[in-house]
Structure formats: C-alpha cells, structure tokens
Design a binder for these strands. Sequence first.
RNA 1: GACUCGAUAGCUCAGCUGGUAGAGCAAUACACUUUUAAUGUAUGGGUCCUGGGUUCGAGCCCCAGUCGAGUCACCA
Length: 525
Amino acid sequence: MFFFGWAKITHHAAPTYLCTMERQLSEQEQFRREALEALRATGMDPFPAAEVPVSHLAQDIKNDYPSKPEDFSEVCVAGRLMTKRIMGKASFASLMDSSGRIQIYLNRDEICPEEDKSIYNDVFKKHLDIGDFISIKGHVFITQTGEISVHAKELTLLSKSIRPLPVVKKDADGNTYDAFTDPELRYRQRYVDLVVNEGVKDIFVKRTKVFATMRSIFNRAGYLEVETPILQPIPGGAAARPFITHHNALDMPLYLRIANELYLKRLIVGGFDGVYEFAKDFRNEGMDRTHNPEFTVMEIYVAYKDYFWMMDMTEKMLEEIAETVTGSSEITVSGKVISLKAPYARVPILEAIKTHTGLDLLGKSEDEIRTAAKSIGIEVTAAMGSGKIIDEIFGEKCEKHYVQPTFITDYPLEMSPLCKRHRDDDRLTERFELFINGKEIANAYSELNDPIDQRARFEEQLKLSEKGDDEAMFIDQDFLRALEYGMPPTSGMGIGMDRLTMLLTDQSSIQEVLFFPQMRPEKAD
RNA sequence: GACUCGAUAGCUCAGCUGGUAGAGCAAUACACUUUUAAUGUAUGGGUCCUGGGUUCGAGCCCCAGUCGAGUCACCA
C-alpha cells in the first residue's frame, strides 16, 4: 500500500494537519449543527440523494426573461443560499449557482398553502443558513424595484452547510465590504475563495479557455496530443534541480520530470510529424510570485520546420488565443497596453545587448565577455561560461525593456545544448525566446538532430557541472541512441502556461492562476 | 536563504503609556407580506499564532519559533 511504502522511505510522522483531533466548535458552528439536528427531527433529510430537476441557470434567467417572459412560468433553480432578508411573512434571498446569483422571493402562504407553516417559519427562517444548498421551484417575475427574481412555490434543502462562509457584501455602487482577502486563507481554502470572491472563478475559466484554444489550434493543424512519462529515470530536457523519489519494486530512484522535451523528440524520431503535450513539470527550487514547484508547460515539436516557422506559428497562435479568451488581441497588463497582434519584433540577443548596454560581444572570447560584463556591474563567477554571462547581461539589462512581444533570437551555443547551430554562424544557435511584458513566455529551437554534436554538447554540460554548475544537464544515452537512428529537421517550442495565463488575466502572482498553489503545511485545525 | 511587514470573534479590522477585550458585517431571539449592504430592539460569541522571559500585572515589552505577504538573493 502506498502509505507504508512512503513511510518506509521518509520515516516522517504524518503531518499534524492530517490528524483528526477534536476541534473546539465555534458558537456559530454549534448553532448550525443544532439546526441540522432540528431539520432531521422534522423528518427532513439534510443531505438527500435524489437528482435535482434544475431547469435554468441564474444568468440565463436574467439574460432571457425580459425578451421571452412566457418561457419562465415554471423554473427550478439550485445553488447556495447567499443572503436572507426576512420581513415577517415574506422574504427575499439570493441564490448563487455556477453562473451567478439570482434573487428569490418567498411568501409564507404560497410556500405553505396548507395549515402547517413550518417550512417557512422553521425551515427557511430558522434552520437554513448562508451557504446551504437549496432548490427553488417557481416562476420568474420582476420586483417593484426592478430585479428579475424567482417567486418560490417550493423550497427543498439539498445540502446543509455546517461551517459559516465569510460574508462578502456589495453596496448599490458596487463597493465590496468585508472581502475575504487574507491570501493564506484564500489559497489554503480555495473552495471558499471561489464561492465568496467575485472574479476568482473567471480567472480559472480563462485559464481553461487558454488551454482549450491552444489545443484546438494544434488539433486543427493535425498535431497529436500525447502523454509522456512524469516519472523519469534521468531528468532531462532542461537544467534544474529535480524532485527525487523511489520505486520500491524496481528499487531504483526516479525523478519527477523537469521537462518532457527528450521524450517528445523520441516520438518525432518514431515518425510522428507533430506532437504536443500539456505537461506538469516539477522543479525543486525556490518559490515566489512567479515560481511554483509544480507548473504547466506546453511543449510542441513539428518535423520539417525551423525556428522561423515556429515564430510565425507562435505569434499567430497567441493572437488567436488572446482574441478568444479576452475578446481582443490588445490586452492590459498592470496598466500597460500590450498588443498580441502578429507579427512580433525579432531581435538577436547580441543586438539587444548592444542596444541596451553599448557592448558588442559578437565573436568575443570568454575572457573579453567576462571583462565586459564586469564593466557594466554584472557579477560573474568562475563557474559561469560565456553563455551564462551573456544570459546574465540580458536578464539584468535588456529583458525588462521588451514589454511588447519580442522574439529574442540566436543565443550563444553554450546556453543551448539541445539547439541546432545557427545556419550562418556556428557560435550561435537557432533559438528564440519570446518576451512579453519583460518576462519570458516561450522558448524554442530548430532542434539539434546531429547525434555526434548532441553527444559533444552533453559532454560540455558535464564539464560545466564539474566546474560547479549544479544545474548542468544529465546525459541521456537512450536519447542519443534515438538521434543516431535519425531525427528529421524539427522545430520545438515550450510555453509556460501559468505565465501565459497570468499575462492574459493580468495577474502578477502565479498563485492566482493555480487552484491549489503549494503551501507549507498548516497547523492542526 | 536575508531583510521588512503582518497574525486579535466566522470574515474585515481597531485596541491609548503595560492595568478585566472593541466595532461593522455574520450569528441568536423578537417584530415586520416587494426587500436588496433590508430595517428596528435585545443578546451571545475570544487559545489576542505557539513557547519561554521581564513585571504586582502582558494583546501590547524582550527572546525563540510557526505560518503568510512583500523586497532581495536563487531560478532556462
């Protein structure tokens, strides 16, 4: 069983948050449990099993009732009770379903036409709480104050909520009061965040639309969506510290993938013309506003193409995604208007450095590059080769200037061990990174398919790692074997899906676009 | 990892020079048949993040720690 295997390796006690300890109930929780028992005492099941005959969503009623009121004489809506306004024998409530909120009007004598008024007087007024799931059958009408509402004929409890939700209110001007804002609580209890904070759902709906749009663009082009191993014996395809785990039956270490590049290229060797994968990757590094230990990358490889083709494809794809998801190819990111309309500027990295620092590094030796970097205040260490230094200069002095989408191209050979040499200059590679709003969004190559050169590049990485670069790449012998059988000329691209989503939803923190961002364990409740 | 800020009622927050813990919303009770941040009256609700220390006395001061946010470092 999973648990025993895991316990054997770690020897850790179960984290405290997994322990089920008696928790002191708050006054409000006690009241809700009493209400639950009171409902049971009336013979009502607070958690009934039957299917709910929902006929309409709140938003559809609000959209369509004005033009076709005759279609709304009998509706059934279901969702959470979010407010109760009781005025004696009549009440208003708001019901929230997946589409939004709608007001419910309840009248005692219509809900309870018989002698027994307990459904209204006891169940609705006393025992129903904010957060309970209910269904309402009735007809749609417009109140005196002009709000489209459901006039209730029948009220059914669907599920009792025994823990109070934070109550967030809005006034007539749209100002929000008592918003549920503590980031720790919002991320740990995302379910609550989604229920009470307006706009949170929308970010995640957009996230899914980004994925769906990208997928449909690739499928339209005939590329194959594939799955490749997450547990890898050699964590290849990128330079990063991996998570390590252990397979008991094989008694061997396995790594959670840091990238899937080398597996997708094996599939190109195998004869697929275009393959792509939305991949969760894992990197055992620091966490901050733009880094989560697990994150999502889309990688695509297309045979017989080069990186120029990939730039064309990428800019058209991003334009279409922006239009589909946000309704416009112009987006606003932290107050800046960014146009994702193709084509994008294309700037070789050494030209970018020349523009922003005045340094001309083309054809310079490692020592000259090191000296030049120091001259503009870049810190360099002995472990850094010329590629890493150039990357450092670009990151420090240039990157931030590329707010509008820009392909930075033709990186030095040393920085790109999986990338084909540049057709015009063998010190450079056919690589681009796409920068938007000063941040890297995508990375692509004309893929290196010369197995002899690939082996030499891996060996170069090995030397770097001996020099102290703990992120240099591992050598994957099976990948080299695959290349030796022959890989067609291929272009590949990886795009950070979390960061793309951040861009398209104007969020500055990766935690806002991940349902469940990584957190330290919380204390026992 | 370093620094800064924060943690008080279900939620958002206030808390004076160290002297028995406060508000709004939410909750409970009553009233109220078209309200919408419903309203009115009354009431209850606290491990002041944890553990030490100083003090006659600590939410507040000191030390150590936990969790979170921000900045930096790290990071293809």
